[in-house]
């Protein structure tokens, strides 16, 4: 894994300041969604070999949730964007 992560708010920071939540493509179902939808959200993971997008949190920095796009084989990091901005469809 790359040792440094470029936080859009704090600049280049050591990876150890961040925690990983997991797959950013999952969307939390509505409260009254089916058991199957909740099962897929809570338990099922695409677990791609290669390019992936994940939610990371800059826990020991700005505490913002971020979307990190990286490769699970080469460990190259392609981009880091703010999570809320990514959810709104933009990036900063």
């Amino acid at each position: 894994m790359a040792s440094l992560i470029h936080c859009p708010h704090c600049g280049i920071r050591p990876k150890e300041e961040f925690t990983v939540r997991g797959d950013a493509s999952l969307v939390r179902p509505e409260p009254d969604a089916s058991d199957e939808a909740w099962h897929e959200y809570v338990h099922i993971r695409a677990n791609p070999r290669g390019r992936t997008r994940e939610h990371w949190q800059h826990l020991y920095g700005c505490r913002r949730f971020l979307v990190v796009e990286r490769d699970t084989v080469t460990h190259e990091v392609y981009s880091v964007t703010d999570g809320a901005a990514a959810a709104r469809g933009g990036s900063r």
């Binding site: 894994m1 040792s3 050591p14 990876k15 150890e16 925690t19 990983v20 997991g22 677990n47 070999r49 992936t52 994940e54 699970t72 084989v73 080469t74 460990h75």
Partner: peptide, 13 residues
């Protein structure tokens, strides 16, 4: 190490 990976190597941290 704490992040998902298919590489058979980890980080120095």
């Amino acid at each position: 190490d704490g992040f998902s990976s298919y590489a058979q190597r980890g980080g120095l941290a």
